[in-house]
Design a protein around this nucleic acid. Structure first.
Lengths: 216, 216, 216, 216
DNA sequence: CATGAATGAGACTTCATTCAT
DNA sequence: GATGAATGAAGTCTCATTCAT
């Protein structure tokens, strides 16, 4: 255990450097965007020389894509599981809102990057972004499906709508929190959002019940 | 008529060129982002030489800022007025949703630009963006205030929350419409969004009524 | 004629610039080799800015390949024709030596580039170089064939050998002339080379004649 | 014996490493040229770490120069001696051709390097190259002088010419052998080359004899 | 001595901007 | 005014060389 410390330290050091580059990159890409971020800046923030970055990532583009893919791999499982293990619509919504806000708060830089890139037709990050868009699409779908489970009368289309709307609410609150540099934690908004959204669902349900009752 | 045509045509021509540059810029900035858009591309799409752009805008940055400011000037009044002239919360929401979706559909490129830039901390477009953020802030405020008018018992904070959430829902639907290249018009989603949001309000109101009744 | 001067001047100017870049490139590539030649140097020698080169050639590599291909296209026809139109072996050799030396003298930089690159296994200029090697191969072949025409008894293999040897003699004299910066013109060596080579042929012929006579 | 083994082994090891670096360098410089050869590649092929090279050679340039000088020191004596110990022109030529072709075959990488660098005006290897050029010059001179010994009537200039031509023939055959990756050994061409060159000499001699006879 | 991670000077290339025509 | 060829600052990336381990 003690004797392999030198070896594992080598590996650890390498992994640590890799991580420090990535953290620097996330922060800068988030704050300034891809093009306004210079490799020099990343190097400086990571505490390395410019050339050293190229020992870990073969190009700026590669660094950006690696960032997207690694974070996607880290975060997506958490997101998915919430929708799947829910036992009631109230539980689903409140868990989801809480989980999302926590993740966004802890990964605000990543959120910025995603949010900014979302509506681009683009260019050359297709590979990475297309993957991520698929993940997102899948996430929306699984959320819509969860709604469908608890609101069986609702058309699939409308369930998807609900999923989008909930995410939209979360997005806007996150952006607001970022832009106004709100000192309160983002999760403090969980209760309001959950409540508002559940009120909406209640209304939908009631209408459904009536309609359902009318159809003999 | 013939002789002043050169003058007025000159003026018109000038205005026309300005506009064609701006339209080209909007489209390209939206599709590719600021840095991926080359002045050559703008010139080509506008049907002018590269040098000519500099007769109308003193730099690329200036073109971008002018674009933001001009469009903000064009669109914001419409947005504001909806909130102000509403006579019922139902009217407010349904008008707003309709107006917003229509505007976004007709100015999708502009929407992309705004959306992408929204969560940036940045850099050098502060001048233009700060202005726009103020406009947006103001718009959110006036919307929150309109809600407050119709839901007098609701804390101001929560009214603002509602405003954000409605806009978030609209944003997400717009992004979804763009990304999936939905062939149906964006406004087709107005009814669902309005309904969902109003159900939510109804729930809030009912709770309020109960709470209100309790308070002697 | 006069009215299209502005147009043709534009074209001419462009062609002139292209040529001045190429001339600068040939000289520098010849003197220093590919890698020791910086785009800045080419630009300076061509009397342009660094960036301007990229208006004419899309990369350093492209410039190098264009150079090879253009010169090959210019010079090869001359070389080929000598071998084809010869009516006697004496005429062939003396014309060829003269033509070759003249061309080499007038294109000494190009000769250096070819000579230096000739025995490389390499790398990325394959496209351009493979073509040129084919041309050279073809040239050697047509020369060998010309020898075969005048020395019908000689095996094809040995004719090819003769072709190589004549070219080798020319190469070495050219290198010697370059390295020693000989003030006399290179063509001054034509007579000696021709004479020496023809003496050799005479010997071969005589042997052939004897052998030929022996075979009934 | 045992105890000094570490020292002598150390020295041997050092010498061995030096040699393995040099062999790697020769091969790579020959195949790819100086600039396309990376120190990493040399290290890998030599089976050492990159840093280790710098314990043996103080820079890439130094490695290249050392290579040239060492090989020159090794090979030149052999070359010189042939010219000096010849007893007849036939012997001279056939020995020289044979020796040269053998050396070239066994040192083809070195040949490539020399051949490629030969006609450069250059740069910073002047030190090493100038030396080598002097050696070569000397070699050509001694060869010319040998010819002069056996052909006393021939002007010195023309003897030098003959020397160049013989070397040119050898060069071209070597290049041809390399480029076409001829499977037959290079020395297989010795007989033809010798024969062709001697035929030439014979012709020269005959003419000389006639001229000599005329001069009373 | 040996290693190989890190450095940083320097090269190629792009593109916003200028300016002679 | 309009053009587009030219400029050159600035950015990405490479690789010879160094140095802590």
């Amino acid at each position: 255990m003690a004797d392999n410390s030198s070896v594992s330290a080598g590996g650890d050091l390498r992994e640590e450097r890799r991580k420090s580059i990535m953290e620097a990159a996330i922060r800068l890409f988030a704050e300034r965007g891809y093009h306004e971020t210079k490799m020099d800046d990343v190097a400086e923030l990571a505490g390395l020389s410019k050339g050293a970055i190229y020992l870990y990532y073969k190009s700026k583009e590669d660094l950006f894509c690696a960032l997207l893919e690694e974070k996607a791999r880290q975060l997506l499982p958490t997101l998915q599981s919430v929708a799947e293990r829910a036992t009631s619509v109230e539980g689903l919504v409140s868990d989801l809102v809480y989980t999302q806000l926590t993740l966004r708060q802890d990964n605000m830089d990543l959120f910025r990057i995603f949010h900014a890139q979302q509506p681009r037709a683009d260019l050359r990050w297709q590979r990475s972004f297309e993957q991520i868009r698929l993940h997102l699409e899948q996430f929306v779908a699984s959320l819509a499906e969860a709604f469908a489970r608890f609101l069986p009368e609702l058309p699939a289309e409308e369930c998807r709508s609900l999923a989008l709307e909930l995410l939209g609410m979360l997005n806007m609150h996150t952006v607001d929190w970022l832009v106004r540099k709100d000192v309160r934690p983002l999760v403090a908004r969980a209760e309001v959002i959950t409540r508002h959204f559940l009120y909406g669902l209640e209304g939908i349900r009631r209408t459904q019940a009536v309609h359902g009752a009318c159809r003999p």
